[in-house]
Structures are given as C-alpha cells and as structure tokens.
Nucleic acid binder design. Structure first.
Length: 348
RNA sequence: UGUCCCAUGGUGUAAUGGUAGCACAACAGGUUUUGGUUCUGUUUGACCAGGUUCGAGUCCUGGUGGGACAA
C-alpha cells in the first residue's frame, strides 16, 4: 500500500475531476485531492463541500488551498487590464499555464508527492525525450488548446485519466459507480469568475465611470455611430454593436488611445500572418522546422497550416497558408503537429 | 408653379391581381473551461381616404409626404 504511487489531483467539485479521482483510485494510485479556492461567486463554497464529500466517500485525503489573492492578482487584474488596453484576454490559458498547474506542482513538492493530475480532456506523449500534451480523445471536449505553455518539469509529472475518454463515457462511469448527482452536473460554462457578460463584470470591477463613449468608424476613419467605450468590444465581434447598416459588420480593430472601434466586412478582417509574444515551445528547433505545422487561434476551431520564424524583435511570426479572419490581439495561438502540442503564444 | 417617379417591419429591399418573403438589426435559446464566431427560434410591416374585383401591397381616383426634371 505505502509503495503504491502517490498523485495529487486538482478537484473542482465537478463531474470531470470527480471521475478522475475514481479512475486514479481504481488504477491503484494513492490519491490526494486538492481544491483550490480561486474565486467564489456570491461567496458560495458549495464546490468545496462537494469535493470534500467525494473524497470522504472514496476514503482519500482532501486539501484546500486558498489562492484567491493570487488569482485576483494574476488573472482578474490581467483580465481587466487587457480589456482596458484594447486587447482580448485569455484567462483560462493564463490560469492553466501560470497558476493552476504550477500551484499544483508546488503543493505536490511540499507534500512530497511525485505525480499531479486533473480532469482535463488531454493526453500525453513522449517523443525523443520531450513530454508533450496531445489532444483528448473526445474531439468535442479536447482542451489541449489551453495547455501550450507548460514546462517539462510539470509535463513529465502529469497524469491525465480522462484523456482517452469521451464526456459521455465519463458521465457513464460516474453513474455506474453510483455517483448520480456527480454524473448529471452541467458542464461549467464561460469564465469561472465571470459567468455573466464580461461587460457587466468590467463595470462592476472598474466602475461605470471608467468607460467613456467613443466612435465607431470605417476603415477610412469615417464616423458611423457612437459606442459605449472601446473595452466593451472585441475583434471579430458582430452582434451587440447597436447599429444597423443593412450589411453585417464586424469589429476589425480597437484603438484605445482614440477610443475608436473600427468596423468592416468579415473579409476585410482576413490576414495571412501575425506575431506572438510570450511564446513557448517544447522544442524550438522542432517548431521552426516542422513541415506539417498547424496553428489554432480559437478553442474548438479548425487548425490552419502555417510556418513560423523568429522575428528580429524576438516575436514568433506565424505565416499562414490560408487566411484567418478576425485575429484578435491578446488571444492565444497554439501549435500542433498532428495531435501533439508543440507550443504557443499570445497574439500581438 | 408645371410634369414625372416613389411610398412595404427599427433599417434596406422582394413578390404575372391569389398564404406579404429575404437581408441587416434587436431579443431569446443551444453550443462552450477565454472573448468572439456560429446554429436554432421569436417579435415587429402595406402613408391616408375612397373605388374596381370573388379577391388589391399590386389596378383606378383624390389627399399627404419624399425625390427628380422644368421654370
């Protein structure tokens, strides 16, 4: 018993991490559950109770870790700052790569636990000594897009019990084991700290006076109408602009310094290349030389063939084979070779 | 002042005299560990008054309101 391997499992209280706990235990691991307190809507801690109850039922230890201050500093502040800078943030990517997984690793170290796990729908692969995230088996749930920034130290310790399963199968497993309520929980939706419209969140966080009405303009700079303030719009947005031009128009660009939002046709938002900052690669040489490289700039969206090179300023320049529309600064790009995640970065 | 053209949802537009349709917008829902995209659905309409007709958005007369040309 004492020589069976230990794993620290991040548990949100939801279906996925609960089934991960069940599966790890059945696979013979000594599981320790940990629930991070990141953000609590209306001070509700029911998720903590649910995780703890499950651990009790399974007979495994359960820890909690209050990361609310860290989360506010690293994720929420970033989130509002990005919008105020006229960009579109990717809180889930940042949280996974810079907060959730590193914290899990840190606690595992403190507890002397070798392995770490979550209920992510992703798999792993080792190629030439490098550990890679690969796509989850369920194409509808694959979350590899969010995990392009993890370092080797974390990747090599990860165990991903849901990677080979579909969501349907995961629910079935919970039900088969008698965890009916767990099985039937709704999927979480949207940003964990902002289930409502992000605009209301910005107003609540920064105060209504932080936003000034500005101008919608054409690509030529011609005035179209007034808007409520540039942070309330995002590149590629079509609906909710509050204007009707008898043709569909999309947000092409946001100019915070002039409080202007440029509108155009969808076609006019197409581009053939863009640059990434804060980019990471498992193996930079492989990334630069990859002949079947593809990039994804949106979760659950199609891959686009591309090549990359390092620009003189140190950015990673992505050259597309087919154009992409509405590439939004602040959003993430993840690189794939087949099902393998080679790296990624933040669009500038 | 004369002649001609036009009038259909919030906006722009269709329909040999026969169920008023489409696009854009708005709203609601679905999908979703980011924003956005997208999908489905819903609401809203004949300038006014007469006439012809089994039946008028459509044809006729008058009015009202726009636009163009002429002076």
């Amino acid at each position: 018993m004492s020589n069976s391997p230990c794993v620290l499992l991040g548990m949100s209280g939801g279906t996925d991490s609960s089934v991960a706990a069940i599966l790890l235990q059945e696979a013979g691991y000594q599981v320790i559950g940990i629930t991070f307190r990141f953000y609590e809507i209306n001070s509700s801690v029911s998720y903590l109770e649910e995780a703890r109850t499950l651990c009790e039922t399974l007979g495994i230890p359960h820890l909690t870790y209050d990361a609310r201050d860290l989360f506010r500093e690293q994720i929420i502040q970033y989130f509002t700052e990005e919008y105020m800078a006229g960009r579109t943030p990717v809180p889930c990517t940042l949280c996974n790569n810079y907060l959730k997984w590193p914290l899990l690793t840190q606690v595992a170290d403190e507890q002397g636990i070798s392995h770490i796990a979550t209920g992510h729908y992703v798999q792993k692969e080792v190629v030439e000594g490098h550990h890679y995230i690969t796509c989850g088996a369920d194409p509808d749930k694959d979350q590899s897009f969010f995990l392009w920034g993890l370092p080797q130290e974390i990747l090599q310790r990860m165990i991903l019990p849901l990677g080979t399963l579909t969501k349907t199968r995961v629910r079935a497993i919970a039900e088969e084991r008698g965890f009916i309520q767990t099985a039937r929980k709704k999927d979480s939706l949207g940003v964990c700290f902002c289930p409502m419209d992000y605009r209301s969140f910005l107003r609540r966080e920064l105060g209504a006076e932080a936003f000034q009405p500005g101008r919608f303009v054409t690509e030529e700079g011609q005035f179209i109408a007034h808007h409520e303030g540039y942070p309330f719009y995002t590149v590629g947005q079509r609906r909710g602009l509050g204007i009707h031009l008898n043709r569909p128009v999309f947000v092409k660009e946001i100019r915070p310094e002039r409080n202007e939002v440029i509108l155009s046709s969808l076609q006019s938002t197409e581009c053939m290349e863009f640059k990434l900052k804060d980019w990471r690669a498992i193996d930079a040489k492989e990334l630069l030389a990859c002949t079947n490289l593809a990039v994804k700039i949106r979760y659950r969206k199609q891959l686009n063939h591309c090549t990359v090179r390092i620009s003189t300023e140190g950015f990673l320049q992505v050259i597309l084979r087919e154009p992409l529309t509405a590439v939004a600064p602040g959003q993430a790009a993840a690189f794939y070779s087949g099902h393998r995640v080679l790296g990624g970065g933040i669009i500038v």
